[in-house]
Every structure is written in structure tokens, then in C-alpha cells.
Simulated scan of single mutants.
Amino acid sequence: MKLKPLADRVVIKMVEAEETTKSGIILTGAAKEKPEVAEIIEVGPGGMVDGKEVTMTVKKGDKVITSKYSGTQVKVDGEEYTIVRQSDILAVVE
């Protein structure tokens, strides 16, 4: 099954947290922070949203940072995704 977002929606998948710190310390499951960076899987077409024209500025494959509790969590074929509005994306990671 494939997710195809509508309007200004974006499907993202959280990037796995680092297993080790920069100094080489291996982290246990409880010590890992919740991932903040996500990869864009699919992007909606944009268009009219709430009476305003929305142009999509992000693209598939971009790494982004979103608001911590934004979006809707969905599970498709055993994979967890989040669907957010483009306006919920705070920054693109380059």
C-alpha cells in the first residue's frame, strides 16, 4: 500500500536515533532521545487550502525537523509514518 497525501500534507518517517555519541559511548534504549529529524517520503500537490494558494517548498527525500507533537501517526505495512501539514515543518536539514 502507498500513501498519497492531499493538499498541503507531507508524509514523513522519523530517522533512527544515533546508537553512539560523538565520543563513542554506546547508548542503551532508555538513554536514546526521541528522533527529531524526519525524512520526507511523499509530498502533496499543494493548491487551495483554507482559501489561500499553497505552493509546496519541500520535496521527497528532504530531511526536516517538525514540531514535536504535530501530525497524525499511521502504520502501513509495518512501517510507522507521520502525516503533517507543510506549515508544521520547522526547518529543512542540509
Results as ranks from 00 to 15, higher is better:
K2C: 02
L3A: 14
L3P: 05
K4Q: 11
P5N: 13
A7L: 15
A7N: 15
A7Q: 15
A7E: 07
D8G: 10
R9W: 03
R9F: 02
V11G: 04
V11W: 00
I12F: 01
M14D: 03
A17C: 06
A17H: 04
A17Y: 06
A17L: 02
E18S: 10
E19W: 04
E19R: 09
T21Y: 04
T21I: 07
K22R: 06
G24D: 01
G24A: 06
I25L: 13
I26A: 01
L27V: 12
L27D: 03
L27P: 12
T28V: 09
A30V: 06
K32V: 01
K32Q: 03
E33D: 06
K34R: 11
P35G: 02
E36P: 00
V37M: 12
V37P: 03
V37H: 11
V37T: 05
E39V: 12
E39N: 06
I41L: 13
E42V: 06
V43P: 08
G44K: 06
G46V: 12
G47M: 03
G47E: 10
G47S: 04
V49E: 00
V49L: 04
D50I: 04
G51C: 15
G51R: 09
G51H: 08
G51L: 04
V54H: 02
T57V: 02
V58M: 01
K59N: 02
K59Y: 02
K59R: 13
K60L: 01
D62R: 10
D62I: 04
K63T: 05
K63M: 13
V64H: 00
T66M: 15
S67T: 14
K68G: 00
Y69K: 15
S70C: 10
S70Q: 10
S70P: 02
G71M: 00
G71P: 13
Q73H: 02
V74L: 14
K75Q: 07
K75C: 07
G78Q: 05
E79K: 15
E79T: 14
E80N: 12
E80Q: 11
Y81T: 01
R85L: 14
Q86H: 13
I89C: 11
I89G: 13
I89P: 14
L90R: 11
L90E: 13
A91V: 03
A91T: 05
A91N: 07
V92A: 05
V92Y: 08
V93H: 15
V93Q: 13
E94Y: 12
